[in-house]
């Protein structure tokens, strides 16, 4: 059964404004439809029967905040998601990056890390890992802790192996991890050149200049105003001739980057031309 929302539009505005001012986590420019659904979902799961109940808990119980953030932000991800995207990265982009003396990649919104390990595997297979650094950032410290461990359920491996193979991977995928009962641990060497750190795309600034920025299925949760801010942040963090990679249904079409970025084939990868 689908019931009417516990948290209405005005409640939502109030709560997000209060969370921003009390805790500094600013969700006010997130896509309304999506965040409203997430917050009503929390009410359902945690059995808050009224908006007042949820609001009291969030604003007065600091330990509840991390749960709130974890549920509001979506952390669903997978390895080698959209194999054709990874195929293009592998065949067209990574070899280009190889001409640089150092390769700096920013994976923004890395969640539990599945895509970071995918990129690391590509760099190792291209023999470029020794001169590459991947900055993997997320707003949520809890998921970053998980990402650092590189431990994932073993029952996903069949699916990830298929994705890997469909993206053009030819190694034995199981060489990249060791299996342990119902979980696998990805090999330590894949983690060596990854720097995990919290970074909030809403409030934090650029921290380096990169040749490749990957931010997939994060911008869909932002409204157009916030998207534009983040596009400018990325633009300021990307070297000329660097690449910006987005999720399969995300686009720079509505932003001012559209003028100076050139799309690579049909994939959601753009090259900064000037």
């Amino acid at each position: 059964m689908i019931t009417a929302d516990v948290v209405g539009d005005e409640d939502l505005e109030l709560l997000l404004t209060e969370v921003a001012s009390v805790y500094g986590y600013d969700f006010t420019e997130y896509s309304k439809a999506s965040i409203k659904r997430r917050i009503n979902r929390i009410c359902l799961i945690d059995k808050h029967k009224s908006f007042a109940e949820l609001r009291y808990k969030v604003l007065n119980d600091q330990s509840y905040l991390s749960r709130f953030i974890e549920e509001v932000t979506v952390n669903v991800t997978e390895m080698f998601r959209d194999p054709t995207f990874y195929k293009t990265l592998k065949e067209k982009i990574i070899p280009q990056l190889g001409v640089n003396p150092f390769i700096k990649i920013w994976l923004a919104g890395c969640s539990t890390g599945e895509e970071v390990y995918s990129i690391s595997i590509l760099l190792h297979e291209a023999n470029l890992a020794h001169k590459a650094i991947i900055y993997a950032t997320d707003i949520n410290p809890t998921v970053l802790e998980k990402a650092k461990t590189g431990i994932y359920p073993i029952n996903y491996m069949k699916f990830y192996t298929e994705n890997y193979q469909n993206s053009g991977g030819t190694e034995d995928f199981s060489n990249y991890y060791s299996a342990n009962y119902d979980h696998v641990s990805f090999r330590e060497y894949l983690r060596k050149n990854i720097i995990f750190s919290t970074h909030n795309l809403v409030s934090d600034r650029s921290f380096n200049e990169f040749q490749l920025i990957i931010c997939r299925n994060v911008l869909i949760y932002f409204d157009k105003v916030l998207q534009d801010k983040v596009f400018n942040l990325f633009d300021g963090s990307l070297e000329t001739l660097g690449y910006l990679a987005l999720g399969s249904k995300e686009t720079i079409r509505f932003s001012n980057l559209n003028q100076t970025y050139k799309q690579i084939e049909k994939e959601k990868i753009w090259k900064k031309t000037r």
């Binding site: 896509s31 309304k32 439809a33 999506s34 659904r37 997430r38 979506v74 669903v76 299925n217 869909i220 949760y221 999720g247 249904k249």
Partner: peptide, 14 residues
């Protein structure tokens, strides 16, 4: 999902 301004809001949640 759909926003009030009739734009599409995609969501990759569970």
């Amino acid at each position: 999902l759909i926003e009030k301004d009739r734009t599409v809001c995609l969501d990759y949640s569970e």
